[in-house]
Design a protein around this nucleic acid. Sequence first.
DNA 1: TCCACGATCGGCT
DNA 2: GCCGATCGTGGAG
Length: 195
Amino acid sequence: LKRLPRSFYTRSALTVARELLGKILVRKIGGKTLTGKIVEVEAYLGESDPASHAFRGKTERNSVMFRAGGYLYVYFTYGMYFCSNVVTGQEGIARAVLLRAIEPLEGIEEMKKNRGFTGEFTLTNLTNGPAKLCEALHIRREQNGADLLGKQIFITHGENVPGKSIVRTSRIGINAAKEKKWRFYIKDNQWVSKK
DNA sequence: TCCACGATCGGCT
DNA sequence: GCCGATCGTGGAG
């Protein structure tokens, strides 16, 4: 259960995106350990990507995206949700990989509590979306900029995902650059969001 | 200073 | 399939 090294993250966003599939996201909180396998991601390529938060350059909100690889970029959206990204590449160049879905492994009871279900609960519904996984793992404003080589959130080696079970498609929920196939997910995994 | 809108989700038709 | 919730952000003026 060793953390991935900085060198894993300082490569291109598309490479890191593909290779994050199958890795284990680990969240330590209140003496508990919550983990999940990364099954769906999207790459965002900064100034050269109209769909990226960093398309128009550096601002207060997106500044973490400009760091060297291996930090967490968390943003608040729709007035009520948080989404998280793994920052990749070199310092000064904004690149990130949005974590869209994980398959819950450890700490499922705690994740249920964090999600605060009112209606029907299903295991799939626990972490099958970017805002859902943040809620389940209690990732919020305070985790923006967290070092992925630190103690509270990190990523470890998981299973090797063969190329033939990786699907590459357009990104979801954006209006610009819809033609770019920068979304990657593990084929037939039930936590991958539909569409 | 203002204000339209968003890398979403859950409930309703 | 559609719509409302809810508010920080940043581009426009």
